[in-house]
Design a protein around this nucleic acid. Structure first.
Lengths: 128, 128
DNA sequence: CTGTAATTCAACCATGTGGTTGAATATGCA
DNA sequence: TGCATATTCAACCACATGGTTGAATTACAG
């Protein structure tokens, strides 16, 4: 496939698509953690945990400060904000449910094919 | 690996971790679309597009109504709301940046290892 | 120096992913 | 009936993913 164009959002969402990594982020939400501390709750090898941490790091969700022989990891919320922002574009779809119903009832006649409403930050500029 | 426990959030974030699928969601934001309509902007086979749509469907992001020989797809924003909500737990990390700085400056002495603050909807109950 | 602790690296494995192509399955239309 | 349209299915391929184990690297401690 060779995937020549991987957008930041691809990487961020992929990093979030694993519950081990999400729980690591949760832990980091409580403060800085070393690699071993992040790995501790899971019954996987340190090497496996190290790979997960690298995925988070490459998604920009985690900054690493090497202090002697231990690596201290800190949450970087920036990419989470990006993801949150992307999702926010769809917010009205789940918040204005009753509103939509109301609007439908208010309309004089039903349009057979409604003109595309289109999202503000979407279509081509989706990954920008 | 056999992945015996896949959480909904795993599936949702995985579905979002592909720009083709995100752009399909964008299109659906503008109204219902058939499979061919969703596939049209992309230079991939219909079979490949069909697979993407199935991923979105299994994540619950898309509902399909079979109308004769065409499948009409509709955006289901529910799972987007879940993802948005999960991210919202981290919102203060990117909104209260200056606040944190201020708090640090206000503190009398630096604690060497700060007591874990812990996130409200996180840790074990991350996927619930 | 020597041992141990923290972490990564490298090689390997099973399975998943995203793509292809060609055939199958309906459905609509003349 | 017969053909075109819309979509999926099945088999295949290259590569990614998440896990393992064992060795390498680096730093602290006696």
């Amino acid at each position: 496939m060779v995937e020549l164009q991987t957008s930041p959002l691809d990487t961020i969402f992929h990093a979030l698509a694993d519950s081990t990594r999400r729980r690591m982020l949760s832990a980091l939400g409580g403060g800085d953690r070393t690699v071993s501390q992040l790995a501790e709750p899971f019954s996987i090898s340190l090497a496996a945990a190290s790979k997960h941490i690298k995925v988070l790091e490459q998604a920009g969700l985690l900054r690493r400060e090497i202090r002697g022989r231990t690596h201290v990891c800190r949450l970087d919320p920036g990419p989470l904000a990006s993801a949150h922002q992307w999702l926010a574009a769809y917010e009205h779809f789940w918040t204005e449910r009753l509103d939509v119903l109301e609007r439908l009832l208010r309309e004089e006649d039903a349009r057979p094919s409604p003109p595309p409403t289109s999202l503000p930050p979407a279509e081509e500029g989706d990954d920008a």
